[in-house]
Simulated assay, not measured.
Amino acid sequence: MLSRTIRKSVLDTRIPSSALPPTFLLPNRARYFNSTTQHVETPPDNFDASQLPASETSASASGLPLSKHAQSKLAKIPSPPPPPSKPLALSKSIKELLPLLAVQPSHYISAHIHGKPYLVTPGDIVRLPFHMPGVVPGDILRLNRASAIGSRDFTLKGTPYVDERIFECRARVMGTEAEPMRIKEKTKRRNRKVKTVRSKHKYTILRIAELRVKGLEEIEQ
C-alpha cells in the first residue's frame, strides 16, 4: 500500500513535456539528447558540381530541391547565342548570292531586341514597349541579332540567327516617351476599402541609322 502511494505521488509530480524550457536554455547534455541528428548523404565519386547551372548549384547548396514551377521557368528562358569564335564558313550558294544581296538596295532586317522581333528598314522609328535601362538619348546601339536579312529579290535566313559578321545594323536612341497617367480603382465585394492603382508606362524610341550587308572581302578578312 505504501509503495502504491509513493508511485502515485511521483506520477502526479512529473513535469509534462509542454512545460519544459526551450532547448537553448537547457544544459549541453540535455540539448544533445533533445536534438535530432542530421542525415547527410555523401555525393558519389564521379560527381562534378561545376556542371550544374548556377541556380541549381545554389539550391543544392542550401539543401532545397527545385520546384516544378522553377524548373519550368528555367527551361523557358532562352539561352543567348555564343559569341562567334570560329572562322566563318560560307556555303557555295551564299558565296554566289551574298554579293547580289549586298548590291541590291532597299534592305530590310528582322532584328531581335530583348527577344522580340522587329521588321525594320533604314530610317524607321521603333517604339519599344519598355524602358531600356542604361541608355541616354544620342547613344548608338548595334543590333547584332537578326533572324532574316533581305532585299527585294533575296532573303538570307538564320538558324535561328544570322551570323553578326555578315551585316551591320545600328540604331540611335532618340529618347523616351510616357503614356498619360492611368488611374484605376479596385474594389472587392462586401468590402468598403477602395484601392487606387496608378500606372504610367514608359517607352524607348529608336531610329534605324544604318543597315549594311558586308561583302565577301570584308567577311573573309
Results as ranks from 00 to 15, higher is better:
I149E: 08
N46E: 13
H69G: 05
N144K: 13
L101C: 04
P84K: 10
T42I: 06
V103G: 03
Q71Y: 03
V162C: 03
P84N: 15
F130T: 05
T13F: 05
K214L: 12
L119C: 04
D48K: 07
L52Y: 08
K184F: 00
I166K: 03
V40C: 11
T187Y: 02
L26K: 15
N144E: 11
S147F: 02
I77N: 12
R170T: 13
Q71A: 14
G158I: 07
S18P: 03
K92I: 08
P81V: 09
K95H: 11
R127N: 14
A59W: 12
H131V: 13
S199K: 01
G134I: 02
S91F: 14
T36W: 14
D124N: 03
I94Q: 03
K202F: 11
P21Y: 15
S62P: 00
P78T: 05
V10R: 09
L128C: 03
Q38K: 15
T187W: 00
P87Q: 05
Q51G: 15
R4E: 04
E220G: 10
L98A: 10
P133S: 13
T196A: 13
R207T: 10
V120P: 02
I77A: 10
K193S: 13
D153Y: 14
L101D: 11
Y161M: 02
V103L: 06
E217D: 15
T42D: 07
L66G: 04
E41G: 06
L25V: 08
L52C: 06
D45Y: 06
D124I: 01
V136E: 07
K188D: 02
F33K: 00
R29N: 12
K8C: 06
V136C: 04
S17K: 05
P129I: 02
L211M: 08
A75R: 06
V103A: 15
E185T: 10
R170A: 00
A54I: 14
F47R: 12
H112V: 04
P84Q: 15
P21M: 15
T159P: 04
P78M: 04
K92Y: 01
L26N: 12
T23V: 13
V213G: 10
I183D: 08
F130E: 12
G150S: 05
P87G: 06
L2K: 02
F154A: 15
T159N: 09
